[in-house]
Design a protein around this nucleic acid. Sequence first.
DNA 1: CCACGGTATGTAAAAATTGACATATAAGGC
DNA 2: GCCTTATATGTCAATTTTTACATACCGTGG
Lengths: 188, 188
Amino acid sequence: MGTLDYAVLGLLARESLTGYALTCRMDKPVGYVWSAKHSQIYPVLHALEGEGLVRHRVVDGRGPRATKRYSITAAGRRVLRSWVVSPLAPPEAKSELMLRVRALWVVSPEAAEVLIAQALQQHRERLNVYRREEASFAVEDTFDVTRPGFSSYATLRCGIGSEEQMLAWCNWLLGSLRKYSVASVASD
Amino acid sequence: MGTLDYAVLGLLARESLTGYALTCRMDKPVGYVWSAKHSQIYPVLHALEGEGLVRHRVVDGRGPRATKRYSITAAGRRVLRSWVVSPLAPPEAKSELMLRVRALWVVSPEAAEVLIAQALQQHRERLNVYRREEASFAVEDTFDVTRPGFSSYATLRCGIGSEEQMLAWCNWLLGSLRKYSVASVASD
DNA sequence: CCACGGTATGTAAAAATTGACATATAAGGC
DNA sequence: GCCTTATATGTCAATTTTTACATACCGTGG
């Protein structure tokens, strides 16, 4: 059972979905914390069904094959619950931006500014997406921890905090880079 | 050229290293932003050498095979520079904690507290590591953007901000979970 | 009426990543 | 003298992820 299997179970615990709808959610709301393509989703769904953690019913839809709506089983709910509270492994980091920043000294401060300005813009846009999302939550979702909506709200709060932090950091770095450029020009 | 290739070039741009030393750095300092095992490093080194981006000299060391010290070439420096400032793709997120939090509503608030307390502890420890690291920087590294040390310092600043943010978020969530537990007991 | 985008499900090849297997030496502590 | 740890380099299998191929229907707008 890989992490993606649990991601799928987590989505199906909220509502029954087709593989396609699952794919869409792995792109937009869930994709911000764990992404996957449809080519990964379908095999996972077949595997989960083989283990009796999900089941499907054929419904009418518009594809070349039968449209299948997947639901979580009681067994699926059990394995999801035990995964959620199982010992947490140290987070595996993959940040291409940070990797680039570690090598930022190889380019000129002016060129570096372009990269950081780009990152700043990306994080600004992401923050806007999050803020719009935040506004769409019902008040109960912001405090009733037993609601699925609260779980989404909690991750969103974390995302907003992260983006604000990234914005502040980008601005600090941009300031440092510009201070250096100004100092260089002055000493010419 | 995968991202790991650039990670290796970025390290070799600072100093010549053996595959083993490279592996150690991909664990400790660089590993916080991009991790890799030694089984990935050696093939990458061979591929980079085949493309003339790195070269090696045999030195004396204590292994079953000849110890090789790798250096970056002028061509390697060029591709590193162009990668650093190339258009930045939107960040790919992989946070198992956030994925679990999205499914947190399936367990009791008391069980949820255990998970978040665990995460809080992990981020506290990571922050301590970063703070100790921060103290070891030379003053020039904190403002001279052309120094390799500044690049390291900049990523560290981001890491510290992220961990502080995560700590605040964990505490907020823990507060919400406890508030709910108290309210439940009171209404019994 | 026709093109386009969204709905819908799959396979296959390639690339990246992890985990296990395999080996060997030197330095330092007990 | 022995045991552990750090140094040191590789391969191989398995897993995970990405990218490309393959198909087809339905509603909307021009």
